[in-house]
Simulated scan of single mutants.
Amino acid sequence: MTLFRSPFRRPTRNVARAMVIWAAAVSCAGTAFAEPPLINGVFQGADEEFAWTIATSCSQVDCNGTVSSNQGWTSPMRLINGEWHFSITKPDGGLCADGSYVPTVIGVMIDPVSLGGVVTTSSDGECPGSTLTSRPFQLHQLG
């Protein structure tokens, strides 16, 4: 028969139980949903030829938005790999070597943090020898 009981035995067991509970809680916890940077407001490029009104939002599933131009077009936009993307088609935006006009697809990517982006234009292969061009741009928010 033991006359002396260690005062450290029960606390050690409780610490071990707490560690098991903590490890289970950490392993079962889901990843936190971080809200990606949204782009909302009226924006203009350095050349000041255009103004875009952009409205974006996110749900637990995806992020979407709309961009409208002062030049008369509107396009849906979507967040893909942390960048906002949208495209528009200009019906007569490409000029072929024979003088005919063809649709041009314009793709736009915007970094929501820096507001820098890239515009990529393609005549969609409708002209023989069609070209694909890309150029960077920088947005700034008005107001």
Results as ranks from 00 to 15, higher is better:
S57D: 14
T53F: 03
T74G: 04
V102G: 03
E126S: 10
A18Y: 06
I39Q: 00
T56L: 04
W22S: 06
N81C: 06
A34Q: 11
S59G: 11
N70Q: 10
V61A: 10
E49H: 13
P91A: 12
G116L: 09
G107D: 11
P103G: 07
S130G: 15
L132G: 09
I88P: 00
N40Q: 11
V119C: 11
G143E: 11
P7V: 11
V118G: 03
A29W: 05
T56W: 01
R10V: 15
I39F: 03
V20Q: 07
G72M: 06
P91I: 04
R5G: 05
D92V: 05
A46L: 13
A97V: 09
T131G: 12
S122D: 08
C127H: 01
W84G: 01
G93L: 06
V113R: 10
W84M: 05
F43G: 00
S130H: 07
I21V: 15
C28V: 12
T31F: 11
T53Q: 08
G41C: 09
V20N: 02
D62W: 08
T74L: 05
S134W: 04
R13A: 14
S69G: 08
Q60C: 01
N81P: 01
E126Y: 12
K90S: 11
G143S: 11
M77C: 03
L3W: 10
L139E: 01
W84H: 05
S59K: 04
A34T: 10
Q44M: 14
I106H: 07
G116H: 12
Q141A: 14
T131W: 06
A24N: 04
T120E: 11
R13H: 09
T104A: 15
V67N: 00
F86Q: 00
E48L: 14
P36F: 03
V26D: 00
T31V: 12
F86A: 02
Q141F: 08
C127S: 03
V113C: 05
T12S: 11
V61E: 13
A51G: 09
T131Q: 15
T66I: 06
D62L: 13
A46K: 10
E35C: 09
N64W: 05
V108E: 00
D92H: 12
G30E: 12
N14K: 07
D62H: 14
L115R: 01
T74C: 05
M1F: 13
M1V: 12
C63W: 01
T120C: 10
C63F: 05
H140V: 08
F86R: 01
Q60S: 06
G93D: 06
